[in-house]
């Protein structure tokens, strides 16, 4: 599933930023935080204007034709050889693992393969390529981390989030029971099999709460929307955030919240 050996590039001068549709619409703060973290590393962030969605919703529903239709015009959005960074394990996984399969035997095969090879999940990129150093400016807080299944298994970056959080002196990372278990989002699964999904998100949210976390962070907006949405509906005191938003906030001395945090989380 995840690569046996990952070969990280040298730290580049420029990257392409692929925001993903969930970040664009619901969690722009996470995208903005990611961009600012990259800029803090002295990297110029190029945001291809014509990006939309990575195609995963259709692909994971079996509608490969529609997925290809959406991906096709976007394959040419990254003409230079810069790395493509994505603030989502699941969308990065889609691009890295599934684009080559989806376009195998088509004229876009090599283009899809080339794109896949230089696509990176953003926290992984910050840690491994930028060797980011974070100085915590925030108050003491207990935080739990939920690594999405695609980040954990497809991208093989389960240790990245905790490593980044461990750089923050005032943040205590608590581990929830069954931390490697899926939160039950699964894209359209949450609607097609709502009851199973509901049972799974209940268990996940309760495990996070039981771990004593006032706050949880995650690599993926799907999981965030799912878990935070459940916590909100159940009036649980716990708040959720994309890990990028959280990291960026911890670096600020004041005026913490980036504007327009959406998602009712």
């Amino acid at each position: 599933m995840s690569d046996a050996i990952k070969v990280y590039p040298d730290k580049p001068k420029k990257v392409y930023f692929y925001a993903t549709c969930l970040v664009d619409i619901f969690y722009p703060d996470a995208g903005m935080a990611g961009i600012q973290l990259l800029e803090r590393e002295g990297i110029e962030v190029v945001f291809p204007k014509n990006q939309t969605c990575c195609g995963q919703p259709a692909y994971s529903s079996g509608f490969n034709d529609q997925a290809r239709e959406v991906i096709l015009p976007q394959l040419s959005l990254f003409p230079e050889d810069y790395p493509v960074v994505v603030p989502s394990g699941s969308c990065a996984g889609m691009m890295r693992k599934h684009y080559p399969e989806l376009f195998a035997g088509t004229p876009q095969q090599s283009q899809a393969q080339a794109l896949a090879k230089r696509t990176w999940e953003l926290t992984d990129f910050l840690l491994q390529v930028c060797k980011i150093q974070l100085q915590d400016q925030g108050e003491p807080i207990k935080v739990a981390m939920h690594t999405s299944c695609s980040a954990r298994r497809e991208m093989g970056i389960a240790e990245v989030g905790p490593k980044l959080l461990s750089q923050l002196g005032q943040v205590e990372l608590v581990e929830q029971a069954r931390s490697a278990e899926c939160c039950g989002f699964g894209g359209t699964f949450a609607v097609r099999h709502e009851e199973i999904s509901g049972a799974m998100v209940q268990d996940k949210a309760e495990a996070l709460q039981a771990a004593g976390a006032e706050h949880f962070v995650t690599t993926d907006c799907g999981c965030l929307m799912n878990i935070a949405g459940y916590a909100d509906k159940q009036k649980m005191p716990m708040k959720g955030q994309h890990i990028l938003s959280f990291l960026w906030e911890r670096l600020q001395t004041e005026g913490k919240t980036p504007e327009n945090a959406g998602g009712r989380s």
Binding site: A19, V23, D24, I25, F26, Y27, P28, D29, G31, M32, I35, F47, K49, A190, V191, E194, E195, S197, G198, V201, Q202, M225, N226, G229, Y230, D232, K233, E259, N260, A261, G262, G263, R264
Partner: peptide, 22 residues
Amino acid sequence: LGGWTRYRSAPKPAAKTLQQQL
């Protein structure tokens, strides 16, 4: 929103999309 909101609050788009903000 159907099955989604049986267990969760409905997600709410941000006031401005990331693309607008950028």
